[in-house]
């Protein structure tokens, strides 16, 4: 067991060091979310009721879009500089490696976003109940974004013209999350219980956590063929 712990530890240390050396790349998606959220009141008018109604959807969609932008970082550099192939020939269990890398990605790209949420909530005039619900849904939902995103990135990493295809693959599979998350927040806005939605999102999280690392490690192997 100690060896799998040291593998996870090593991979995470490496990825975290890299993330903090490239801070600019981390900050950009956050600024993107902030700007998208700023665009909406300018586009649809500043009426507080309207913003409160569409706010949760806006924040979730902005989170998905910004997530898509930073997703590639997960495996792109490793693929191009040959780190992936060295990991594969080291005989390390790739499922563990993938899981560790996904967790790192979530930690550095979505956790800051969750911390930023109260500010966005103020911008869009969300009530306190809604803000809490929004943060909980992001906490449960964004790891799923990272995991599904990892599958997409691993599948497209070898493509010279990856670009938009990643979004094309991923947006449809993100839909259930968006539906349940926004509906939970809507319930919260009416002071209704929203545990059922959270439970479903939790189920999706567990299902994805069980399958995604396997799919990612297989996709990374295929990318080397």
């Amino acid at each position: 067991m100690s060896s799998s712990f040291s593998i996870i530890n090593g991979v995470m240390r490496r990825d975290l060091i890299l993330a903090f050396r490239q801070k600019a790349e981390l900050a950009q998606p956050l600024m993107f979310v902030l700007m998208v959220v700023t665009l909406f009141p300018l586009g649809v008018g500043p009426s507080p009721e309207l913003l409160q109604r569409i706010g949760p959807g806006i924040i979730w969609i902005a989170a998905i879009l910004s997530g898509l932008m930073g997703m590639e970082r997960m495996f792109r550099d490793d693929y191009h500089d040959g780190s992936t192939e060295q990991m594969l020939v080291s005989g390390m269990p790739m499922v563990l490696v993938s899981a560790a890398k996904i967790f790192c990605h979530w930690l550095v790209s979505f956790v800051p976003l969750i911390i930023l949420t109260p500010l966005l909530a103020v911008f869009l005039n969300l009530t306190w109940d809604m803000t809490v619900a929004l943060m909980i849904t992001l906490l449960i939902g964004t790891p799923v974004l990272s995991m599904l995103g990892a599958i997409g990135v691993a599948l497209t990493v070898g493509l010279r013209k990856g670009g938009l295809i990643l979004s094309l693959l991923l947006i449809p599979v993100f839909i259930p999350l968006l539906i349940f998350a926004t509906s939970a927040i809507e319930s919260a806005s009416m002071r209704l219980p929203y545990l059922p939605q959270l439970a479903i999102m939790g189920a999706i999280l567990l299902l994805t956590a069980a399958l995604a690392p396997v799919a990612v490690s297989y996709a990374l192997k295929v990318s080397q063929h």
Binding site: L155, A219, S223
Partner: peptide
């Protein structure tokens, strides 16, 4: 790759 995507 497309096969994995179809399964997902």
């Amino acid at each position: 790759a497309a096969g994995i995507m179809a399964l997902v």
